[in-house]
């Protein structure tokens, strides 16, 4: 087994699926010769040719709109959007067509496709290159929203996403892309979509997170451990569908919850999780649920980026708060 980072792991997953299934096709801006601006599709055009890893005109609505057409007529497109900040032009197609086609045609037409995009902050990027809009997507019925936080999961999830019968929005925390290396099996495997993972067991407080916030939360939890607080950490891995059972079970055990996300607080997924906890485990709670999130502002440029992002210190503060209640 080789140690791989997330970029290499997703690349390997794409490569394997393209080898196995000639219907899998990569489309997007700079995905060909360039191999994507983050190199996730590196080598795919060289290996599979110009017709299977295709540079398109610079048009996000075009990319995902034609992906629907490809998908209903025999292909499994894996479309790349260069950054989540450039998802908005494609939202019309996602919201009004891709997510609805199964329903509108009562299953006659379906849309097995993947739309990948790097998301999130923390890499000193220019404007529109740091957004986290997963709650906007999770609000759309008919699409699944998958977010890996490690290289191992990223490979297993991209393979599962390509094989899924429904459209998948695959959000890649770009801050993690090259930050961690871990053992990633050479063989083809899947990680089930919609299954959360307990990364650390603990009985005092449940910390729920996903994407780049997982590492921050784990750091915070280390610090909390030094203060004698034993936290359980759950990586959701998909925010739609959300694996309620895993976190509810944890909440029933710990009775205290901290939710961490990079996206703005208002109408962020933290709110949805709290609602589900209230519906199904309210009486287990011994403290109000704490949200440690980005703020309700435009994502700032680099000078203030670190102020905006939830840091291990800020998460620790949230943990202390629910413990002290």
């Amino acid at each position: 087994m080789a140690k791989r980072n997330m970029v290499e792991a997703i690349n390997a997953g794409l490569m394997e699926e393209m080898e196995k299934d000639p219907a899998v096709m990569i489309i997007g801006e700079d995905v060909g010769k360039e191999g994507g601006v983050f190199r996730v599709t590196d080598g795919l055009q060289a290996k599979f040719g110009l017709e299977r890893a295709v540079d398109t005109p610079l048009a996000e609505s075009g990319i995902v709109g034609v992906a629907l057409g490809l998908a209903i007529n025999g292909f499994k497109p894996v479309a790349e959007l260069q950054f989540m900040g450039f998802l908005p032009p494609a939202l019309d197609q996602i919201l009004n067509h891709i997510s609805r086609i199964r329903n509108r045609s009562r299953g006659r037409y379906t849309c097995p496709m993947v739309i990948r995009m790097p998301y999130g902050g923390g890499i000193h990027a220019p404007e529109h290159h740091s957004e986290s809009m997963e709650s906007i997507l999770a609000h759309i019925p008919g699409i699944k929203v998958v977010i890996p936080s490690t290289p191992y999961d990223a490979k297993g999830l991209i393979v599962a996403a390509i094989r899924d019968p429904d459209p998948i929005l695959f959000l890649e925390p770009k801050r993690v892309y090259r930050a961690i290396k871990e053992e990633v099996p050479e063989d083809n495997y899947t990680v089930p979509i919609g299954e959360a993972k307990v990364l650390r067991e603990g009985g005092d407080v449940t910390v729920i997170c996903w994407g780049a916030m997982v590492r921050e939360a784990l750091r915070a939890v280390e610090m909390a451990a030094e203060e004698g607080i034993n936290a359980e950490v759950i990586d959701l891995r998909a925010v739609s569908p959300m694996d309620d059972n895993t976190y509810l079970e944890s909440v029933r055990k710990t009775a205290r919850v901290v939710i961490v996300h990079e996206a703005p607080k208002t109408c962020g997924l933290g709110a949805e999780i709290i609602a589900r906890v209230n519906e199904k485990a309210l009486l287990s709670l011994e403290a109000p649920v704490e949200r440690v999130t980005g703020y309700d502002t435009t994502f700032p440029l680099t000078k203030m980026e670190q102020d905006y992002l939830p840091s291990p210190e800020r998460i620790l503060r949230g943990i202390r708060k629910v413990m002290a209640f």
């Binding site: 700079d30 360039e34 540079d55 398109t56 005109p57 610079l58």
Partner: peptide, 11 residues
């Protein structure tokens, strides 16, 4: 060019 994409791929 648009990053790596040559003009002829735009139109």
């Amino acid at each position: 060019y648009a990053i790596s994409v040559p003009r002829k791929i735009q139109t």
